[in-house]
């Protein structure tokens, strides 16, 4: 597929290998571990997530067999954490990508057609921004019941208006700048102008925006789970674990500690990586 374009360019991996700062390397390794855990959750999980052991309730960290301790029902925190990483990652990645694709597409449509299309998109974005999202999600989830697909879709619609605004503004200014209009006057179709020229040029801003949406989605999902409308027990997510662990904050802080740490580390890694990638992929900054 990529045969035609592969020949003259230095590949992305050669560029990556050239120089990776230490912090970025740590972030990459952490994200690889997280993804590995999410993919192989079923294999590396020591216990089933709902297996209770009432003899070992609220066992502290370091208890043999329960290295991250157990919760109030004697369930292994490590096993639940591994499962939660998988669930939260699917939701956060799915929702971030959904909102980025949907928002960017609408923003480009507005920039291309202007006129009433633009008015409709901007009005929708304003409507979305003015709507208290939590209330709307509560209404939707209460009405349709909670499911993983619905949750991802709902979260995906949370951030789209920001992408739409950014993509529209950047595409309009790109057309005014000349390189886009130069390609248009070469006879290129709008699809080529937007996908081959404008998108790579505005990608850096969109990537940074994605690194902001990702943690927001995790936190939003935690909030919904905490209200009992997100991921339903016995299934668990990172936010869900933090929410239920809150009641035992003083007696058994480890229930909450592990998932909180994973949230912080993952979102931080994504922010660092996104920032670095944006600079690396820009040929003008080198």
């Amino acid at each position: 597929m990529s045969l035609a374009i592969a020949a003259p360019k230095p590949g992305i991996f050669t560029r990556l290998r050239l120089k990776v700062p230490f912090l970025i390397a740590v972030a990459i390794v952490w994200l690889l571990i997280i993804v590995f855990v999410a993919v192989f959750a079923d294999v590396i999980r020591p216990y089933p997530i709902s297996q209770m052991n009432l003899a070992h309730r609220l066992a502290p960290m370091g208890t043999p067999g329960y290295w991250l301790g157990t919760d109030e029902l004697g369930r292994d925190v490590l096993s639940r954490l591994i499962q939660s990483i998988r669930v939260s990652l699917v939701i956060a990645f799915g929702a971030t990508i959904l909102s980025a694709v949907f928002g960017t597409a609408l923003g480009f449509l507005a920039a291309q057609f202007r006129g009433w299309v633009e008015h409709v998109v901007v009005a929708m974005a304003d409507f979305q921004a003015a709507l208290p999202f939590m209330i709307m999600s509560l209404a939707v989830l209460a009405f349709f019941g909670s499911s993983m697909v619905l949750l991802v879709c709902l979260m995906g619609f949370y951030g789209w208006e920001r992408y739409a605004r950014i993509a529209r503004g950047l595409a309009i200014s790109a057309s005014a700048q000349g390189y886009a209009s130069a390609v248009v006057q070469l006879g290129a179709k709008p699809s080529r102008v937007y996908l081959r020229h404008i998108l790579p040029n505005v990608a850096s801003t969109l990537i940074v925006s994605m690194t902001l949406t990702f943690p927001e989605v995790i936190l939003m999902e935690s909030g919904l789970s905490f209200l009992g409308l997100g991921v339903q027990p016995p299934e668990s997510s990172l936010g869900n674990m933090v929410g239920f662990g809150r009641e035992y904050l003083t007696r058994a802080p480890w229930i909450m500690l592990a998932p909180s740490l994973v949230i912080v580390m993952t979102t931080l890694s994504i922010s660092l990586l996104g920032d670095w990638l944006r600079d690396r992929l820009d040929p003008t900054i080198r």
Partner: peptide
């Protein structure tokens, strides 16, 4: 109009603005 572009072309005043800075 698009296919006619192959026969008529424009050369711009500011070449840096007319070129995509992310393409060789």
């Amino acid at each position: 109009w698009r296919s006619l572009r192959a026969q008529m072309q424009l050369i711009f005043q500011d070449p840096l603005a007319a070129l995509d800075r992310r393409m060789t």
